[in-house]
Design a protein around this nucleic acid. Sequence first.
DNA 1: CGGCCGATTATCT
DNA 2: GATAATCGGCCGG
Length: 203
Amino acid sequence: MLDRSFYQRPAPLLAPDLLGKLLVRQINGQRLAGIITETEAYQGQTDLACHARVGLTKRTRVMFGQAGHAYIYFPYVMHWMLNIVADEEGLPAAILVRAIYPLDGLDLMEQNRPNLARLSNWLNGPAKLTRALDITGCLNGSDLCQEQSGIFVEDGLNFPANLVRNSARIGLGKTPEPWLSMPWRWQVGWSDAEEIIKKEIGM
DNA sequence: CGGCCGATTATCT
DNA sequence: GATAATCGGCCGG
């Protein structure tokens, strides 16, 4: 399990380092886990794409808190999204986990999110992976540094830097510049990730 | 493969 | 009452 100090830095520095880490969910002693392959950084009240731009509210309270906790947000209709709180207390910052490559507990994930083919489009979206891992608002504020939370992050592998694509964040709607184009999204393609994971972990 | 559209709810103004 | 860090189905090329 990763130490809290790993999370205690600005989101744009933490986000690329989360690629390759293992997102783990424990439900009734069962383990669901996947390698993180896509992240986005949201940093501070000055970042007009960040929910915390409006200041401290009931919703953004977790983001203002201690790093290494889960900020789980309900953005749209039937979806939940998982964020990891970054930076120091009092400074709102978080990483949105946008995609994972499934590793453990695939059968259980499939019960939550059917996909018999288990193809590249199974867990490649922030609301898809929360559905598969049964992550909802109930887990908002969970401490990722405590195993009993049922959700935490383990060390995984390092993707070669040349496979990491860096681009602007997506789905930000009417967010003004320069925040709309801020290159705070990092991702490794599904086939690239698969190749490295099979080589490193063996399957 | 890209664009359009409807689902439908927590949170904030 | 408006808005939203999405998804999947349907359409046409």
